[in-house]
């Protein structure tokens, strides 16, 4: 059995599957408000729990 073509078809199938999932999740997250204002809060908060010890700066 030569799997050359099946592997190519598999790769294409996979690509479309991934693409469909990407679109699905994009729509879903947009509806859920994931792209809203507070979606990025976490990256500011991580700077706050400062280590209160002396450094060179």
């Amino acid at each position: 059995m030569d799997y050359t073509w099946p592997s190519v078809y598999f790769a294409y199938l996979f690509f479309f599957l991934m693409f469909a999932l990407a679109v699905f999740f994009f729509v879903k997250t947009a509806r859920d408000g994931y792209w809203g204002k507070d979606g990025e809060d976490i990256k500011y908060r991580m700077l706050e729990d400062g280590d209160q010890r002396r450094t060179h700066e």
Binding site: F25, K28, T29, D32, G33, Y34, I42
Partner: peptide, 8 residues
């Protein structure tokens, strides 16, 4: 759902 992904 992905909101949950961020927090769970």
């Amino acid at each position: 759902m992905l909101r949950k992904a961020d927090t769970s």
